[in-house]
């Protein structure tokens, strides 16, 4: 049902999780019902204007109000309400196989897995297991939404919200912030990568390991420019908590919170002209880094897989 030119990464009806499938079923019931009711009302209106004053008894018109305007909607709405409530109950899982913590920041995502693994802007989930995602925020309100996998839940300072997802289809799906969170709200994206359970377990194990390599000219440049004040690269002196954890940066699929492809040129541009790519971003631009140092740093960051 995806229109031409559409990648479908954010398509509600991708059916990539059990929850999304439940909502999709509900949606098609609603769409079909709404279409039929709209046509009936329009036909009645057309008929009413055409047949005005002809062969209509007052009694039948008044009965139409009671049956069409009162009784019919009551029954239909009661049925819909019941369906909606049961669907809601069914898509909120009581138990989960895996718990993630995702924190919304202006304008990126901090993602935590069991065992202290922290990454950013990429949520990896195993297919067929129910993941419980705990959602928090510290600065302003954000909202976690991966349309292909289901509904959104807000991330509100002072609260911990809970979303459960059970992915069914392996793939790289899109995610975005759905609640206006100031400035670059439009550029607060992430990727949801659904993996086979074995691959996921292996990935999580790799992710838990410290950075490889743990030294080199690139790292020195990184530390020399003070990047470590904001970013963490586990296994090195860089232990900043303000910005995204970069321990396995090179293995990510995107840059700048899901908005850019991760390649050499883009990364160079990002470091030197950050706010032209993302206005208002907290990370300062480094336009004056010596070229050699910059290239070393890029080599190093891309090697962090």
């Amino acid at each position: 049902m995806c229109l031409p030119g559409c990648s479908g990464r954010h398509y509600w009806f991708s059916g990539a999780s059990e929850e999304a499938q439940s909502i999709e079923t509900l949606a098609w019931i609603l769409f079909a019902g709404a279409g039929v009711i709209w046509l009936i009302v329009m036909a009645l209106a057309f008929f009413a204007m055409r047949s005005s004053g002809r062969s209509n008894t007052e009694k039948s018109a008044r009965r139409m109000i009671l049956w069409g305007g009162f009784a019919f909607p009551t029954v239909v709405l009661a049925a819909l309400l019941g369906t909606g409530l049961l669907t809601l109950k069914s898509i909120v899982a009581e138990r989960s196989d895996l718990t993630l913590e995702v924190e919304g920041e202006q304008w990126w995502w901090r993602v935590g897995y069991p065992g202290g693994v922290v990454t950013a802007n990429e949520v990896r989930l195993p297919r067929g297991r129910t993941a419980e995602i705990l959602l928090t925020a510290d600065d302003v309100i954000h909202s976690f939404w991966a349309p292909a996998l289901g509904g959104k839940i807000d991330m509100i300072p002072g609260r911990e919200n809970r979303l459960t997802l059970t992915p069914t289809t392996v793939g790289n799906w899109g995610g975005l912030c759905a609640e206006y969170c100031g400035g670059a709200h439009a550029q607060m994206r992430f990727n949801v990568i659904v993996m086979e359970p074995d691959a996921f377990d292996a990935w999580l194990e790799d992710e838990a390991a410290p950075a490889q390599p743990e030294s080199g000219p690139g790292l020195e440049a990184f530390l020399g420019e003070g990047c470590g004040a904001c970013h963490t690269i586990r296994g090195t002196e860089a232990q900043g908590l303000v910005g995204p954890d970069l321990t396995h940066f090179g293995a990510r699929t995107s840059l700048g919170a899901g908005i850019l492809a991760l390649d050499r040129d883009t990364l160079r541009h990002w470091i030197t002209h950050t706010d032209t790519l993302k206005p208002g971003v907290k990370m300062p631009a480094y336009p004056d880094i010596p070229t050699e140092e910059l290239e070393d740093m890029i080599d190093y960051l891309l090697s962090l897989t």
Binding site: A48, G53, N56
Partner: peptide, 16 residues
């Protein structure tokens, strides 16, 4: 819904 059906019924009985 009641409201809209009242409008429709009025149109039916009147001379539009």
């Amino acid at each position: 819904g009641v409201q809209i059906f009242c409008f429709l019924a009025t149109l039916m009985l009147g001379r539009f």
